[in-house]
Design a binder for these strands. Structure first.
Lengths: 259, 259
DNA sequence: ACAGACCATTTGGGATCCCATAATTGGTCA
DNA sequence: TGACCAATTATGGGATCCCAAATGGTCTGT
């Protein structure tokens, strides 16, 4: 249990993301105090945090207004994150002394492969897969030698699907066992990209590492676009339901990769 | 005049940057209340802001400790920013409907050229040049179509030389009229890079736009390294004194480019 | 003399109060 | 009837108070 203001910020953030607070709605300190039964101090801290995250901004005159969170915005943020990850991959490929990091990445790749080969995509498997994906991506961010890359990524990781290692799945297909082959193929392709990134970094090929990571990031954007194509009224809320790692109440990225 | 907590955050931030608060120093709310004669509410808001900026972090038990701001860290942040700007350049090259933005960029380039051709690098000229440089770079960030690029850049712009359009000069050379030719040459090269970026964007050549912007960003890093080579004990404070736009107490980037 | 427990002081989180000011409403005058 | 001005209210910023938790030092018992 964190402090009240942190919890409050999380609550409000998700109220904004899932549409409880509509775009343009005005937030006043007093209302939030009343509805959450807390005093104004934590409310003010929470609002300040959300303002810095860009979820809300000072309105004209008084009060805050909630910013719009759109599918397009998520895609843009994923693009930014992917671009930063590609920088990390390039830098890591140029760096020396990374055997430990490489080992951890290789292990994550093998474990993901094993999980895919199980053939069943239940929640437990997805959770494990996400953990390994998280390990792979965080290792690169942490091991690239430029700590600002990770810092900057974390700065935007409050948005859905922006946390390190986030994955998007077609839950309809998984739950209904429909098109499961297509989903598994997608996962296999994703992990093969992991292999290429690993190899490029290991062989100190920065251009290939950067390019492959960029491609890998594009995968998520394209997958989101598949959803958009299938459902032209796709909401951010829908998108969240398709992602592994629901409400990230636990700040899992704090632990990092342990190095 | 902003609110007290904003001013306080600015003050503490610069105390950290210029070394008044040493790396690892503990900040307690009570001390800051006492030394700045304010109550704990604004202090807490200021500390929260600085924490999110990464300038300080929660210590082991109680209190905050100041993070180290090093020349190496600045270089890393400049690299991140440059990488994001190269994404912006690529995206803008791919986009349509940007004649206004292109006009503004062309105008900035010509004005910078005119300022360089004056041959004298007094403070007023540098300030004007910085303004044009700011226009050029912000126009790309704002006009690339991905608003998260600009947002993410702004997230790290509290560090010295990270604000949009920041420039680094060899003040020793300027004040003492020594090596002024070398400085002018450097400026001319920088502006020629501007021209190439402009041309690539105008001709919708994303690869060239991205590559040239990356090169343009590297220029600042290399320039910093020139200073490091000349003075092996170069401090962040020294670096700040070499940059145009001292303490950015005025949040000049708020105005943007007007679109 | 050393170890463990206990107490005091420090410190941070939260609640409440006060005040300045922006927004709104109502009234009056042209 | 419409516009302008004043009074009231809503709201946010800052100050102060209270409480819980943690830290450090001391005291006592073995």
């Amino acid at each position: 249990m964190s402090s009240i203001d942190t919890e409050l910020a999380n609550t409000i953030r998700w109220d904004i993301i899932d549409g409880t607070f509509a775009h343009g709605a005005r937030l006043t300190e007093a209302k939030l105090c009343d509805s959450h039964n807390v005093s104004r101090t934590p409310v003010r801290l929470a609002l300040r945090r959300l303002e810095q995250e860009g979820m809300i901004r000072k309105g004209e005159g008084r009060g805050y207004v909630v910013e719009e969170v759109t599918v397009e915005g998520i895609k843009q943020a994923v693009q930014v994150r992917g671009h930063l990850e590609s920088l990390a991959a390039r830098l890591m490929a140029q760096s020396k002394n990374k055997p430990q990091d490489l080992d951890r990445m290789a292990l994550a790749i093998e474990r993901i492969e094993a999980l895919i080969d199980q053939g069943s995509l239940d929640d437990e498997t997805l959770t494990k897969m996400h953990a390994e994906n998280f390990t792979f991506h965080s290792t690169i961010l942490n091991g690239c030698g430029n700590s600002y890359v990770k810092f900057t990524c974390d700065q935007i990781s409050h948005l859905p699907m922006l946390a390190s290692g986030s994955m998007v799945f077609d839950r309809d297909s998984i739950d209904g066992k429909k098109d499961i082959d297509k989903t598994i193929l997608r996962l296999k392709i994703g992990n093969s990209q992991h292999r290429i990134i690993y190899k490029a970094i290991e062989q100190e090929d920065p251009v290939r590492a950067e390019g492959m990571m960029r491609e890998h990031s594009n995968t998520m954007i394209e997958y989101i676009e598949v959803f958009e194509h299938r459902n032209t009224k796709l909401t951010v809320r829908d998108l969240v339901s398709y992602s592994v790692q629901g409400k990230p109440d636990k700040e899992s990225q704090k632990t990092g990769t342990g190095n």
